[in-house]
Simulated scan of single mutants.
Amino acid sequence: MEKIPITPQGYEVLKKELSHLMSVERPRVIKAIEEARAHGDLSENAEFEAAKERQAFIEARVNELNYKLGNAQIINPEALPKDRAVFASRVLLSNVETGEDVEYQLVGPDESDIREGRISVASPLGQAIIGKKPGDEIVLQAPGGKRVYELVEIL
């Protein structure tokens, strides 16, 4: 069984989404299906088809969330080594060309949000950072050209 690394905050977000789907969205779509059935002929009932599609989406997402939560390996960022970048590490990077500093936390794909400073370990930059130590250079081939960063600190 594959373990899925996740931060405590990411785990809570997925739990909240699952709870919302189960307690709000599922009952709402069941009611919509019942109302559409009451309109009669289901073969040409667009409301019924839309509600059934929504139900299929909700059930698929519930199954996906149950799998991820059931296989989650919660990684506490406070207990991580500070000598190299690993999953859940917070890193400070400096753009070698511009001198601009950026701070990121390395997270799983479900948790990534660039506006919040969380990048996926599966992203090109995330993959380039993993395993690096303070002082190491990180070279990233971006669509706009090559970017070079220095890993200043693991926070």
Score class of each variant (00 low, 15 high):
13 V>A: 07
98 T>F: 14
73 Q>I: 04
132 K>Q: 07
117 G>V: 01
114 I>L: 15
56 A>M: 01
39 H>V: 05
46 A>P: 14
84 R>F: 06
11 Y>V: 00
91 V>Y: 07
124 P>E: 04
54 R>C: 02
12 E>L: 02
153 E>Y: 05
149 Y>R: 07
22 M>C: 12
109 P>G: 05
91 V>D: 12
25 E>R: 12
88 A>K: 02
29 V>I: 13
139 V>I: 01
89 S>T: 13
111 E>K: 06
86 V>E: 15
120 S>K: 09
118 R>N: 06
139 V>L: 00
132 K>D: 09
21 L>V: 09
66 N>Q: 02
59 E>S: 02
134 P>K: 05
68 K>M: 05
76 N>K: 12
110 D>Y: 09
101 D>A: 10
111 E>V: 14
47 E>L: 09
28 R>H: 13
20 H>Y: 11
125 L>V: 07
24 V>A: 13
110 D>Q: 14
105 Q>P: 06
148 V>S: 09
16 K>Q: 13
78 E>G: 08
16 K>E: 14
96 V>M: 14
61 R>P: 01
125 L>N: 06
72 A>V: 00
148 V>P: 03
124 P>S: 03
39 H>S: 12
79 A>Q: 12
20 H>K: 05
71 N>P: 01
11 Y>H: 10
90 R>E: 15
105 Q>N: 11
21 L>Q: 04
101 D>H: 11
70 G>M: 10
74 I>E: 02
5 P>M: 04
118 R>P: 08
60 A>G: 06
67 Y>T: 10
150 E>P: 03
39 H>G: 11
56 A>R: 04
141 Q>I: 07
1 M>T: 15
40 G>L: 12
94 S>P: 10
4 I>A: 02
66 N>I: 02
33 I>T: 10
41 D>N: 14
105 Q>C: 06
122 A>W: 00
27 P>T: 01
113 D>I: 10
73 Q>D: 11
